[in-house]
């Protein structure tokens, strides 16, 4: 399980203290730092910012960029934008799901991969495209899925 360094959480909180309407920005920073927002981090924010936990969960569960579950070592984003959709993205997503034996939104039990779908990566010329960690794999077919995933340990 991805550990959350609470000292770092405190540092991030420190940057926002005394400001109004900053909860979303604060949670985004936590998300970007740790790739997820743990119950411990939420407790910390609640305590220090004097915001009820329920309100933090409401925000964190509403916005797509925030995850309340830990994620794997590699994050796969499958672009499901309309351009990729018409070029066969659903087949790619199916193939990855079948290959990893998880559904979209889940993480493999060995914490190797988390699988997410995104609404558009905005590089439609490359579609269908998937983004693994920071690398774009474009114009892919279902037959290429296995070898792409094999590049990530």
């Amino acid at each position: 399980m991805a550990e959350i360094n609470l000292k770092r959480v405190d540092e991030i909180i420190e940057g926002y203290k005394g400001e109004e309407g900053v909860l979303i920005q604060l949670l985004l920073d936590i998300q970007n730092e740790f790739n997820w927002i743990s119950p411990e981090a939420i407790a910390r924010i609640s305590e220090q910012m004097r915001i009820p936990k329920s309100q933090i969960y409401r925000i964190a569960s509403f916005y797509k960029a925030m995850s309340l579950k830990p994620v794997g070592r590699h994050i796969i984003h499958v672009c499901m934008g309309t351009a990729c959709q018409v070029r066969g993205a659903p087949k790619i997503l199916d193939r990855i799901e079948e290959n990893l034996k998880i559904k979209e939104g889940e993480t493999t039990s060995d914490m190797r991969f988390s699988l997410k779908r995104v609404n558009c990566l905005g590089c439609c010329a490359m579609g269908p495209v998937i983004l693994v960690d920071g690398t774009y794999h474009g114009k892919i077919t279902s037959a290429m899925v296995e070898s792409i995933l094999g590049q990530y340990e």
């Binding site: 979303i24 949670l27 985004l28 509403f62 916005y63 797509k64 960029a65 925030m66």
Partner: peptide, 8 residues
């Protein structure tokens, strides 16, 4: 600048 957190 306010960063949007992903909600259509």
């Amino acid at each position: 600048v306010h960063r949007g957190a992903g909600a259509f």
